[in-house]
Simulated scan of single mutants.
Amino acid sequence: MPILALLTLVVMVIALIDAITRRDDQVKHMPKFVWVFFIVLLPLIGSILWFTIGREYEQRTAPLTFGDPRRWQRQPDPSPAPAPRDARTTEQQIADLEREMHLADLEEQVRRRRAEGGA
């Protein structure tokens, strides 16, 4: 009997962690807080229902095997990465350099004024 209670507790904890960490668009049929309440109220039945009908599973186009290199590939980042310095146009590079020179001049003026004011 204690093994069944321990198994129920483990399944409930796993279901709670899974339900809480899911995004709202990955939860089906009821809001997330209702699923959490249901899992806590009826641990075994709620956990089984969560894993069978409550969460959305990813759809794979082809099954992955253990040694499949796709398993270790990262998903592409949807946000565009900044262009490397060499990929920018010459005009963009010149504008960046002019901005850097202007900032360096302003920093030099600040240093000079601080030195004059402190003397």
Rank of each mutant, 00 (worst) to 15 (best):
R112A: 15
G118C: 10
A19L: 04
P78G: 03
K32M: 05
V34Q: 08
F38T: 12
V110N: 07
T8Y: 02
S79P: 04
M30N: 01
A115G: 09
M1W: 12
P2C: 02
V10K: 14
K28L: 15
L7H: 09
S47Q: 06
Q75D: 09
H102E: 15
P76R: 03
Q93C: 08
L7V: 08
I94A: 05
R70D: 04
A87H: 07
P43S: 00
L49W: 15
V36Y: 06
I17A: 14
L64G: 04
R23P: 06
H102V: 01
M1Q: 09
V110P: 08
G67C: 13
G67I: 00
L97E: 12
R60Q: 15
A62M: 15
Q92H: 08
R113H: 07
T90E: 14
T21L: 06
R113L: 15
Q73N: 09
P2Q: 13
Q59D: 07
R111P: 09
R114N: 15
M101W: 15
D24F: 02
I53L: 09
P82V: 11
L7F: 12
T21D: 03
R70W: 03
L97H: 04
Q26H: 13
V36D: 01
E116S: 10
D24H: 02
S79L: 06
L106C: 07
L44A: 10
F38S: 09
M101C: 10
P63C: 06
E91M: 05
L6P: 10
V110W: 09
V34Y: 05
M12W: 05
V110D: 03
E56H: 08
K28P: 11
D105L: 13
A5G: 06
L6C: 15
D24G: 07
L41F: 11
E58S: 00
E98P: 01
V11E: 10
M12H: 08
P63D: 02
V27C: 04
G46P: 02
F51H: 06
A119W: 13
E108G: 14
E108Y: 10
T61A: 14
P78E: 08
R71T: 03
T21N: 13
L97N: 10
I45K: 02
T65H: 14
R71Q: 03
V34E: 03
R99V: 03
L97S: 12
R114T: 12
V34C: 04
T52I: 12
M1T: 04
R85H: 11
A15Q: 00
L16E: 06
G118M: 15
W72I: 03
P84K: 05
R112V: 12
Y57M: 04
L7Q: 14
R70Q: 00
R113Y: 09
Q93E: 08
E116I: 11
V110S: 11
L49Y: 09
P76W: 07
T89A: 04
R88D: 00
A15K: 06
V27H: 01
R23Q: 11
Y57Q: 03
R88G: 01
I94H: 00
A19E: 04
W35I: 00
G118Q: 13
Q59Y: 12
L103W: 15
T8A: 08
